[in-house]
Simulated assay, not measured.
Amino acid sequence: MLLTLIGVVATAYLALLGALWWGQERLLFEPEPLPADHVFAFGADVHELSIDRPGGTRLNALHLRLPDPHGIVFYLHGNAGNLQAWFAHADFYRQAGYDLFMLDYRGFGKSGGRIGSEAELRDDARAAWQQIAPLYPPGKVRVIAGRSLGSGLAAGLAAELQPDLTVLISPYRSMAALAAQHYPWVPGALLRYPLDTEALAPRIGGPCLLVHGDQDSLIPPAHSAALAARLPQARHVRIPGAAHGDVQDFPTFRATVRSALDAAAAGLQPTRQTLSMLVPPG
């Protein structure tokens, strides 16, 4: 009886691991598609465009274009949702005087295909950047930003491009480290998307801002602290009272990001500092 029970449990465990291996894209990314005829209504200065990828896959993106911007914020969004929700904060960048570009990953929104590997994700982000980069010659500020899931992609792109500013919002050390916290019973070798931000961080040479809610239970703020210790020029700001999904709603968050964008536009080069902001939330 005992051996039978052990066999049943072992079989169930292996079956669960198999399901996690084959189904981890849905668990990690949670894509939400939109119909092909969906119309985005974010203003006349927001343009919809496509990025063509090998194999006929076409990715959808939105591009806020101002008459004379300081530069571009190339923003890689988090998991779940799509551009309809993620682009809703475009006014913040309008007021800061920056263009905003945002891509929907494969299977998200109106983007075709489905995510198949980390390398493919990174290649898609790189291709999107290469398509718009000629619009921002020297003299225009280039900002690479990423939030949550997108922070790992943003760190990789920033390590390649060395932008004027990198902004990582609610970042993680690596997807493997995050999975080990939430699912310690799952072998690390099962993860096909390691997204190792910690390994990439030392290669980001320019100013970097890390912003994290101090009540974030999904990606604990200790992840930002660990990354800040490895970044050559990092400013680490914790937003009191903010969790994972609401950090953008706090005035402290908006003021922090706006200050970094203003400094980049003014040509300032912030020195390395790691901060915990001890001001009242909201």
Rank of each mutant, 00 (worst) to 15 (best):
L5E: 07
G7Y: 00
L16P: 03
L16V: 14
R26C: 08
L27Q: 11
L27W: 14
E32C: 08
P33S: 13
P33W: 10
A36Q: 14
F40E: 02
F42M: 03
A44R: 11
H47N: 08
H47L: 11
G56W: 03
L59S: 03
L64R: 00
L64K: 00
P69D: 00
I72T: 01
A80F: 08
N82T: 08
A85N: 11
W86D: 03
W86N: 07
F87M: 04
H89N: 15
D91N: 13
D91I: 11
Q95S: 13
Y98G: 00
D99I: 00
M102R: 04
G112H: 07
G112V: 06
G113T: 10
A127N: 06
I132H: 00
L135H: 08
Y136R: 00
Y136T: 00
R142D: 00
G146H: 02
G150Y: 05
G152C: 06
G156E: 15
L161K: 00
D164E: 12
T166F: 03
L168N: 06
A179E: 12
A179L: 12
P187T: 06
P187H: 08
L191M: 13
Y193K: 09
P194R: 02
L195T: 02
E198M: 14
E198L: 14
P202V: 09
G205S: 07
L209S: 04
D216H: 04
D216I: 02
I219A: 10
P220H: 12
A222M: 13
R230N: 09
R230H: 13
R230F: 07
L231G: 02
L231V: 07
V237N: 01
V237H: 03
G241V: 03
G241F: 05
G245Y: 10
R258D: 15
S259D: 14
A260Q: 10
D262N: 11
A263D: 15
A265R: 02
A265W: 01
A266R: 15
P270R: 08
R272H: 15
S276A: 15
V279S: 15
P280Q: 05
